[in-house]
Design a binder for these strands. Structure first.
Length: 582
DNA sequence: CTCGCACGCGCG
DNA sequence: AAAGCGCGCGTGCGAG
């Protein structure tokens, strides 16, 4: 190993606000920047020295600037190094770039190289800090000068924004989310393989020599009897549809909701077959074998993977785990799980965004839908729920569509906000979340179709098509502002929670070390996230303090986004060893 | 053979 | 009762 040649040694009083990491040939360069992003010192390091150097320079008041969090942080975590804050250039670029921007200095739309998609970091990839890996790095810029240039552009874009305070909060929250995602993968979700196997065997039955579970086989047999077709294909929708038609079940599709409207001996076993076969193919033994190792499920989370700002996931279906399998999520011995989800996050966010004090009052301290019933707007909780969902999704027909006007009378401000977002979208405009994430503009074809429909000689079909597409986009922008702001609240919640958990005491490795890797084996950590829900894995002795941290972080997130506006975010919170039991 | 798409269903 | 938003993934199947 070469000794590091430090171009200038930062002293103990060096007031670095940021340290940017980037490459220079086969070296790693760290550039310390002051509050104005002016360079103060520069250090060049051999890749194997990076983790130890970062550990030494880490401080809660410092923000690490790097191209892409999984690329840089996964290796740090593997080496036992946790950082408090970062600025993820790829994610923040996506927030700050202006489609069709003028390309002026400071406008990040000019830095196209940063539009790269998320970088996949396979579990088996060579470590970043190994020199050989450099050749296989992705297309995202990593050279230190590119990193510094983009960082300065982004800083300028933030300051030039309409509401710099909100955008500053958004890029900080987005970057914190990137740290959380990397840590969630590093720590993993504690998963009891034996419990999972027990659930599968219980639901699907014992597997025969060919690996076919008995109850699945039995359901298939009963379906074929009811169809009077011993060789009927049950997994091909077109073939199954024809077989159903032959026995007089005249459905238009093979979806379960349509099937359940019919009465015929084939319906019950077919619905059973579909349910079992889904569990088998999506989260059966093959999934367990592929995705769970050493007692951990390690999904790949993709922060910012959805246009609204929600996370997506890639591999393992992390965001679609059936509730049926929650019983396999079990804390390590001596540890507990704190499971918390926010009740009715989206309507609460809507109440705050629109400053609708009537809706906020209906929500306060209780079930929001019960509060809506108390206003007299609708007769039952079920009505309140489908009316509210209909308002946020843009329902126009059915029970939901009929109930929305009642909400419009009772909560005119909240409904006015989503209606306005829909109108903007229908007109081809761009809407923004509370903190300023912009919806994508309509594609050029959309514009062309609208233009054609408004020409004097437009055909009726052109007008119909244009109108339908405009309405589709209206429903998208209507939902965008609410879903996106809810995602921002969740990021703020996790970012604050992450800091509170890091401040809790560690346990001694001899007492109750878990299998959560070098950073998290002895301290409470986030283990799962699902839009409005978190699971924290915590040494049993600190479970109550972790639960308080989860609640306090929710309150803090509400104040961070909405200040003094009187909206609360009550949690359903449980402390348990198994994620599905109290 | 691989690839892209539609379907259906899991999650919020 | 099952439409109104956002996703990922396994499966079958036709196109190349």
């Amino acid at each position: 190993m070469r000794a590091s040649s430090e171009i200038s040694q930062p002293g103990a009083t060096d007031p670095a606000h940021w340290i940017a990491l980037g490459r220079l040939g086969d070296r790693i360069v760290a550039v310390a920047l002051d509050a104005k992003a002016d360079e103060t010192t520069r250090v060049d390091l051999a890749p194997p020295e990076v983790a130890a150097w970062v550990r030494r320079r880490e401080s809660p008041s410092l923000r690490w600037v790097w191209s892409d969090t999984p690329t840089w942080y996964a290796d740090l975590l593997a080496e036992g190094v946790r950082v408090a804050r970062c600025h993820d250039l790829r994610l923040c670029h996506a927030i700050l770039r202006t489609p069709g921007g003028d390309g002026a200095p400071g406008d990040p739309s000019m830095s196209r190289a940063w539009d790269a998609a998320a970088v996949e970091v396979p579990a088996t990839a060579p470590a970043l800090f190994e020199i050989e890996a450099a050749a296989t790095r992705p297309s995202l810029p990593e050279d230190i000068e590119d990193v510094l240039t983009e960082f300065r552009r982004q800083r300028a874009a933030v300051e030039a924004a309409e509401n710099p305070g909100a955008i500053r909060l958004l890029v900080a929250a987005e970057s914190a989310g990137a740290l959380v995602a990397a840590e969630l993968r590093a720590a993993g979700l504690p998963w009891d393989e034996a419990a999972h196997d027990e659930i599968l065997t219980d639901v699907l039955g014992e597997r025969d020599a060919d690996g076919v579970p008995a109850k699945l086989e039995d359901a298939a047999r009963r379906v074929r009897i009811a169809l009077s077709d011993p060789s009927a294909s049950l997994d091909s929708p077109p073939k199954l549809l024809r077989a159903l038609h032959r026995v007089g079940v005249m459905v238009d599709s093979t979806s379960k909701w349509e099937l359940s409207e019919h009465r015929h001996p084939v319906i019950e076993p077919l619905l059973e077959y579909k349910k079992l076969s889904r569990l088998q193919s999506a989260n059966g033994w093959a999934w367990l074998d592929e995705w769970v190792h050493d007692g951990r499920f390690r999904p790949v989370y993709m922060p910012g993977g959805v246009v609204t700002g929600r996370w997506a996931s890639s591999g393992g279906g992390a965001l679609q785990l059936p509730r049926q399998l929650r019983g396999a999520v079990r804390a390590d011995p001596g540890w507990l799980l704190v499971t918390a989800d926010v009740a009715q996050l989206e309507p609460r966010v809507l109440a705050a965004m629109s400053a609708d004090t009537a809706l906020a009052a209906a929500a306060r301290g209780r079930d929001l839908y019960a509060g809506i019933v108390e206003t007299g707007a609708v007769p039952s909780r079920a009505d309140a729920k489908i009316a509210m969902l209909g308002a946020m999704y843009g329902a126009t027909t059915g029970d939901s569509g009929r109930l929305v006007p009642r909400l419009r009378r009772t909560f005119p401000r909240a409904m006015g906000l989503v209606d306005a977002a829909a109108a903007t979208g229908e007109g081809g405009g761009v809407v923004s979340t509370w903190l300023g994430r912009r919806s994508p503009p309509p594609p050029p074809e959309w514009q062309a179709v609208q233009a054609r429909a408004s020409e004097p000689d437009a055909a009726a079909a052109d007008e119909t098509r244009a109108r339908r597409w405009a309405r589709d986009r209206g429903r998208f922008t209507r939902n965008f502002i609410v879903q996106g702001t809810a995602a921002e609240w969740a990021l703020a919640w996790m970012a604050d929670l992450r800091g509170r958990l890091a401040a809790l005491p560690e346990v001694g490795a001899a007492d109750a070390a878990s299998r959560s890797g070098p950073v998290f084996a002895t301290r409470p950590h986030l283990a799962f996230f699902l839009h409005d829900e978190v699971i924290v894995h915590v040494p049993a002795a600190h479970a109550e303090r972790a639960a308080d941290a989860v609640r306090d972080a929710a309150a803090t997130a509400g104040r961070l986004l909405f200040g003094d506006f009187p909206i609360d975010f009550p949690l359903d919170l449980r402390v348990s060893r198994i994620a599905d039991k109290g």
